[in-house]
Design a protein around this nucleic acid. Structure first.
Length: 336
DNA sequence: CGGCTTTGACCAGCGC
DNA sequence: GCGCTGGTCAAAGCCG
């Protein structure tokens, strides 16, 4: 929780230098074209073409500006959510400390065998939350467990669900097979038990139960670590790309859309996958570390590339730029 | 027909 | 040892 996304130097600006295009080259050519220094060599159609190029260049600059603005808005939203999350965490900590200091155990019955959903490292992300209990947290539950067992990763995910929807389903992109359901003592709503069915060797389990406080919130507890890539990644690999439907790289939930004002990248913090940090990396327990991870950067880059590649204006601009580059080279060759 | 869900039965851990 | 509880198994049913 030490790193702010806003401090991340993710430069999303599409520099023409990055495209190996020298803007001066264009401006020089355009200026000389306008000044008529090359008019003797250029036909009317070439002048029109230059105008089109200039217009497209301006369009690209505008879209670049829009993208930067959208990113800024996204960062602002993220900061707002993060502040809200920190507030909730501090509230929880205060509540826990006050309860423990007073010796209150109203919500936790003394007979409880296992300390489930130990909300120690709980984080919330705008109506969506996760927690991750560390290895020692799990070893507390089973003091005599082996070292191997004590390394089982436990993470808890809170997902907003439709109260009218009785299914205990938390969509995280993985394939789960339900193998049991049980009504527990401390919660009137049943708890569903799931096993990862994507890979037979994957021993990851998931427990889903409605929150006692808020029935509209599903609490999913993940045990273990997937030993296979995310199904969507596999799909993308099999398909050769990630272009079908809404691209979902890894499990980082991201809805992408291209509207009239340009491509929009929307980090959907309400989707389960983001909090399921097992997917994102080495079990980071908060979104700060997620954003710190190289996977996140890779995801951002791939999303941008994906959106840009879908944008016809970008394609045409890129094609124009490349052809312009060749044109420039061919001019240089003819000069020497 | 294969995969998934449902659900009652069974097992193991824990406290008394 | 007994009862309580959480977790798992497996047969039956459902569904595309």
């Amino acid at each position: 929780m030490t790193m702010d996304l806003s401090t991340c130097s993710v430069d999303t600006s599409l520099s023409l230098f990055d495209l190996n295009i020298n803007p001066l080259m264009y401006s020089d050519r355009l200026n000389s074209t306008m000044n008529g220094t090359e008019t003797s060599k250029m036909t009317v159609s070439e002048t029109q073409q230059a105008n089109v190029l200039a217009a497209e260049l301006n369009k690209m600059v505008e879209e670049n500006k829009k993208l930067s603005e959208m990113l800024m808005v996204m960062l602002q939203n993220y900061n707002t959510l993060r502040n809200h999350m920190m507030e909730l965490i501090s509230r929880n900590k205060n509540a826990d400390s006050s309860n423990s200091s007073k010796g209150m155990q109203v919500a936790t019955p003394p007979k409880k065998r296992k300390l489930e959903n130990d909300n120690n490292n709980t984080t919330t992300t705008g109506g969506y939350a996760e927690s991750s209990s560390s290895e020692e947290g799990y070893s507390k539950q089973k003091p005599n467990t082996s070292i191997e067992e004590s390394k089982i990763k436990i993470s808890t995910v809170y997902a907003k669900a439709d109260p009218s929807d009785n299914r205990l389903v938390v969509k995280d992109g993985y394939q789960w097979r339900k193998y049991g359901q049980k009504v527990t003592r401390d919660n009137p709503s049943p708890r569903a038990y799931f096993k990862c069915s994507f890979a037979p060797t994957c021993l990851v389990k998931k427990k889903v139960q409605r929150s006692v406080e808020d029935q509209s919130v599903l609490v999913a507890t993940y045990e273990g670590e997937h030993n296979h890539p995310h199904p969507s990644q596999t799909d993308a690999i099999l398909a050769g790309s990630n272009v079908r439907g809404q691209p979902n790289i890894g499990s980082v939930p991201c809805l992408t859309s291209i509207n009239s004002s340009g491509p929009t990248i929307t980090l959907d913090l309400t989707q389960p996958g983001l909090s399921h940090h097992q997917d994102i990396g080495a079990h980071k327990s908060n979104s700060d570390e997620i954003t710190k991870s190289p996977v996140f950067y890779q995801f951002l880059i791939e999303q941008m590339a994906s959106n840009l590649s879908k944008d016809p204006t970008f394609k045409s601009a890129l094609a124009t730029a490349i052809s312009g580059r060749y044109f420039q080279q061919s001019l240089g060759n003819t000069k020497y």
